[in-house]
């Protein structure tokens, strides 16, 4: 977080918060509402200005904007620019907003054909573009990652932001917490796993319950993609398999130049 941001925050007594939704399942917004035991305390700290999932009243005056969802329509871009002008701080909620996640699965396919499959003869009513992350359109100050976000992490970020601290989101990979939990490594269970390159902070929840990491929190700060590619190849995966692995949540960066693809390629 920049010094200007910290300064901006410290002047706020009870910041007005707005929560917006683009293409997404609303699951991250629901995670905020799932803070049932903490909502009363939370509302002492912040004032809700706009949160369609939770309340009827609306307002265009807010300090902190939290955006869930991916950009999938041209109109979304104007909406985002307006939000950026009005808010002092902009954060994203969840994998759809960054690094795009599920809405990005259509990218790389014929978008008209995709629209026809989903909306049939009414496809033209729903004009849609390639799914892209919020920060490809406007400057974003912080990302709260995950699919969905975790309510405890959301609360830690909110308190951190109010105190003018760096948002406590780890840069290290999922493996760190997975080892501390003494899980049996997914690779030792005959699976492959994106834990070594995916941002931690989730408590390695998927591997802890017998699954493995799919990369929903985006890449760690310092992923060794080339080495993981070799590792996955050692476990019988082709380059196409590996790109498909990344496509579920990190597809936008896997497809775009200068992003994951450039890093994954030898």
């Amino acid at each position: 977080m920049s010094e200007a941001m910290i300064e901006a925050l410290q002047t706020l007594k009870r910041p007005r918060v707005a929560v917006f939704e683009l293409a997404s399942c609303a699951g991250c917004q629901l995670q905020i509402l799932n803070c049932e035991d903490e909502l009363v305390d939370l509302l002492q700290l912040i004032e809700l200005a706009y949160f369609k999932e939770a309340m009827t009243e609306t307002s265009d005056v807010y300090d902190l904007a939290l955006i869930e969802g991916a950009v999938t329509r041209e109109a979304d871009e104007d909406k985002l620019r307006t939000i950026r002008e009005r808010a002092k701080l902009v954060g994203t909620l969840g994998a759809c907003a960054f690094p795009v996640g599920i809405p990005g699965l259509k990218n790389g396919h014929d978008l008209e054909e995709v629209a026809r499959q989903v909306y049939g003869e009414h496809a033209s009513y729903f004009p849609s573009v390639e799914a892209k992350p919020v920060d490809s359109v406007i400057k974003v100050d912080l990302h709260i990652p995950g699919c969905p976000i975790h309510k405890d992490e959301f609360l830690r970020v909110v308190t951190g932001v109010l105190l003018g601290r760096k948002p406590p989101i780890p840069g290290y990979p999922v493996c760190v917490e997975c080892r501390l939990k003494e899980n049996i490594c997914a690779f030792d269970r005959g699976l492959i796993c994106l834990g070594p390159v995916t941002r931690g902070g989730c408590g390695a929840i998927c591997p802890s319950y017998g699954s493995r990491c799919f990369g929903c929190r985006g890449l760690a700060d310092d992923p060794n993609l080339a080495s993981v590619e070799n590792l996955l190849e050692d476990h019988g995966r082709t380059r196409e398999d590996i790109l498909a692995e990344y496509a579920l949540y990190n597809g936008y960066y896997a497809l775009h130049d200068g992003g994951l693809k450039a890093k994954v390629a030898p």
């Binding site: 290290y172 080892r179 070594p196 390159v197 080339a226 070799n230 590792l231």
Partner: peptide, 13 residues
Amino acid sequence: GEKCLSCGACTNV
């Protein structure tokens, strides 16, 4: 350094 995943498994265990 090229191989290491910097996953912290070695130090955690």
